[in-house]
């Protein structure tokens, strides 16, 4: 099929539709509300902040489908790693 797609330049919106649908349905089925995502985000920030200084205004957090599995993908920009992070951890 890909040979013909290339040869005739026919559309690929079928694949786009399938991938978008799979993503949408992950959210639908899991019924993860924006509120739950926000709570998760807040808790993540709290945990990670004990180890490093993060830019919490630029965190990206989402569920993504990769092949046949679902992943929680977070992109959390680090500003600085706290020097005493390990000590703090042991101290608890």
């Amino acid at each position: 099929m890909s040979f013909f797609k290339k040869l005739f330049g026919v559309g690929q919106s079928r694949q786009t539709a399938k991938e978008r649908l799979q993503l949408v349905l992950i959210h639908d089925r899991a019924d993860i509300s924006p509120e739950v995502m926000e709570n998760l985000r807040r808790d993540l920030i709290a945990v990670i902040s004990t180890y490093m200084e993060i830019d919490d205004s630029n965190i990206e957090l989402d569920l993504e489908r990769e092949d046949r599995s679902v992943a929680l993908v977070a992109s959390i920009p680090i500003r600085n790693v706290r020097r005493n992070a390990k000590v703090a951890d042991k101290g608890q």
Partner: peptide, 15 residues
């Protein structure tokens, strides 16, 4: 479907 511009039955069943 042949042109790759509509979900095929197999796609719908997968989903």
């Amino acid at each position: 479907v042949r042109e790759g511009n509509m979900l095929d039955v197999s796609d719908v069943l997968d989903i």
